[in-house]
Design a protein around this nucleic acid. Structure first.
Length: 658
DNA sequence: GGTGAGCTTCTTTAC
DNA sequence: GAAGCTCACC
């Protein structure tokens, strides 16, 4: 692993803050991992005092693996490689007292948070409205504003309303002994900002910080970086303004320029040699991104071959498109003897994966859907998690409400409303209120017996939790709560019951593997994970969103749904945010090492209706000379592919002896 | 208090 | 065209 002069500079410069402007495929992960090695081996910094921050868990895992490979053995003991959010969580778990949190506090996921906001708004509020408020609250938090500050800064009635909701929302979170994702950054920033002793201690704890995907930091994350780094400025930020694709969640690429102002001794290194893409792919990417305004001009170049032209598939509809992509993958994999894992299919929205999965299954191509939170969103997994949350944190009302109905135990809306009222009056959480005899006595005898039975069950499990591992607790609770029995009754056939049982078991296994920590700590970590991070993908075609693909590379990349309305997305067109959509396309294109496929459908089904579709304006922005458009005769091709698919079904039937 | 028929809304993107 | 929600009925 040899470094070019710029990369070497980036690795060896440690005397002052460093910003690395790293183009796509310019080897920035190598730079970061090599720099970790350099800091440990040459600068004698203990690994436990180094933190490398990434944006996705997937990226964190990959970097950790590469660092381990590079350093071998115990040299990496204690090294922190995680996301900003995971770092914030770790901080809060250690400093929970300063944050006014009790041990085992809950991290609300986006769903929990959304439900809570919905509750705080007048009943029957439109979902637009709810989302708008939720967005505004989140934005205020991403700017590390307290609700008082947000109220002072509010300009419109809507912002004032949101600030007001923000205040109530925080009160509820505090009552639940819970935080949300945004708090994982905001609270550490607040605490470090106002508590000098704490700040000094953490600055002492961490001697060097490395931040990947720096262009995606928001105001709160930037503050966190500054607070942790302190005046020493012992950090390296690596980023690429052309790959900034998270403005919608508060990322501010201006943070790149801010760095130079806040740290006048900042050193800047540019990495412009691309080691990934064939030249034609790189030319296409450069041409596309040239349509965006730039403050930092980079010119990416590559020593690779020209490569094949970029192929553009015109399809009749998304089913046709999926079938065609699957066929092409099958064909290329055989022709070039390439493992499946060198293929990726990228799309704009998660819902687009369905059709692709169907087509891949039909052609018996192994695939792995990454990103998304499908696993954690399964009903049975959420149920078990709700129980665990409630056991770890008796004030978690959201968990109470889910657990109490999983399975059904004769406690319905009326009883819960009554219980909620009394809990409110007594300023207690639902579970604590339900534990009181005076409260139970106010309920009809049948209901109070049911509630009492539930409370006792939780107490028994809670007691059990002190002597068993979280994994075993998981299994015990699924049994004792009656969840498994209800699941068995609910499922029509044995196979689907087994599948769902396995999901619960997988959760238990995750806890077994996660090792140390009480259930509360572990659930909090789990909440931050997405599907991609749970299991190794093995030799399978990767299916993921364009956002999730950032930082990865594949020999063969297919981008599907390259249509106006999808990519660029409708709402981005409406709000005039085309630049970010273009960067998203740029990210997708630059994932490809050898061959890039773009495809679009001419007809689509939207909300059940058929509509006509125009191909993406971004395709027209690509240099025509690098493109090879295939399948203009889409209708005829669709028929061919349907026949192909039918034949595939026959094959499977034959194999199964049907 | 639980259940199913019929209604609406929904599609960005992620920690 | 699915998932979630409301409301009437058991």
């Amino acid at each position: 692993m040899s470094l070019n002069p710029q990369q070497r500079q980036a690795v060896e410069h440690v005397d002052s803050p460093l910003l690395v402007l790293a183009g796509a495929g310019s080897g920035k992960t190598s730079v970061i991992t090599q720099k970790i090695a350099h800091l440990i081996q040459r600068c004698d910094i203990p690994p436990a005092k180094i933190a490398a921050i990434t944006f996705t868990n997937k990226a964190a895992r990959e970097m950790r693996e590469r660092a381990h490979k590079l350093l071998r053995g115990g040299d990496v003991e204690g090294l922190t490689v995680c996301t900003f959010h995971a770092l914030g969580l770790k901080f809060l778990q250690i400093e929970h007292e300063a944050a006014n949190l009790r041990r085992g506090f809950t991290v609300f996921d986006a769903d929990d948070a959304g439900n809570l906001i919905k509750e705080l708004l007048p009943k029957g509020a439109k979902s637009d409205h709810i989302n708008a408020v939720r967005g505004l609250v989140s934005r205020a938090k991403n700017e590390a504003l307290s609700f008082e500050q947000a109220a002072n800064l509010a300009k419109s009635p809507r912002e004032r309303e949101a600030a007001d909701v923000y205040g109530q929302y925080q009160k509820r979170l505090a009552a639940f002994n819970a935080v949300d994702f945004d708090d994982l950054i905001r609270l550490p920033v607040q605490l470090l900002g106002e508590n000098e002793e704490l700040r000094a201690r953490w600055q002492q704890k961490l001697s060097y910080l490395l931040v990947d995907e720096y262009q995606d930091t928001n105001a709160a994350q930037y503050s966190l970086l500054k607070l942790l780094a302190g005046s020493r400025g012992a950090f390296t930020c690596v980023g690429d303004d052309d790959q900034s694709i998270y403005a919608w969640r508060g990322a501010d690429p201006e943070n790149i320029d801010r760095l130079g102002k806040d740290f006048p001794n900042l050193r800047v290194v540019k990495l412009e040699q691309n080691y990934r893409c064939a030249r034609r792919i790189l030319r296409a990417a450069n041409t596309l991104i040239a349509n965006n305004p730039h403050t930092h001009v980079k010119t990416l170049w590559s020593q690779h071959d020209e490569g094949d032209p970029i192929r553009v598939f015109e399809c009749s509809d998304s089913e046709h498109e999926a079938t065609r992509v699957a066929s092409e993958i099958s064909f290329l994999a055989q022709k070039h003897k390439t493992p499946w894992s060198e293929f990726a299919v990228l799309f704009r929205g998660n819902h687009q994966s369905r059709e692709l999965e169907k087509a891949l299954q039909l052609q018996r191509i192994p695939y792995h859907l990454s990103g998304g939170t499908a696993f954690l969103e399964r009903a049975e997994v959420k149920d078990v998690l709700a129980w665990l949350r409630l056991i770890a944190n008796p004030d978690d009302d959201a968990a109470f409400l889910r657990a109490v109905a999983a399975p059904k135990r004769e406690i319905g809306g009326t009883t819960l409303a009554r219980l909620g009222e009394m809990a409110n009056k007594l300023q207690l959480s639902l579970l604590r209120a339900a534990q009181r005899i005076d409260v139970l006595n106010q309920l009809p005898s049948r209901s109070s017996a049911a509630v009492d039975a539930f409370v006792n069950l939780v107490a028994a499990l809670r007691k059990a939790s002190t002597t068993m591992t979280p994994g075993d607790l998981c299994r015990k609770l699924a049994e004792d709560s009656g969840l498994l029995a209800a699941l068995r009754a609910e499922c029509r056939d044995e196979a689907s019951f087994q599948r769902r049982r396995e999901n619960i078991d997988e959760l238990a296994q995750w806890f077994d593997a996660a090792g140390k920590g009480g259930p509360g700590e572990l659930i909090a970590q789990l909440t931050l994970l997405t599907n991609a991070d749970r299991d190794s993908a093995g030799n399978a075609v990767r299916l993921m969103t364009l956002h999730a693909s950032k930082g990865l590379e594949f020999s063969y990349v297919f981008i599907v749904g390259v249509e106006d309305g999808l990519l660029p997305h409708e709402s981005s067109i409406d709000e005039g945010r085309l630049d970010e959509e273009r960067r998203l396309m740029y990210v997708g294109i630059t994932r490809a090492k050898r061959l890039l496929h773009l495809s679009y459908a001419r007809h689509a089904k939207r909300f059940g209706e058929h509509i006509k579709v125009t191909r993406s304006r971004f395709i027209d922005e690509l240099p025509a000379a690098e493109l090879h458009v295939v399948g203009r005769d889409a209708e005829q091709d669709a028929v061919r592919h349907k026949e192909h698919a039918a034949a595939a079904i026959d094959n499977i039937k034959a194999l199964l002896g049907l």
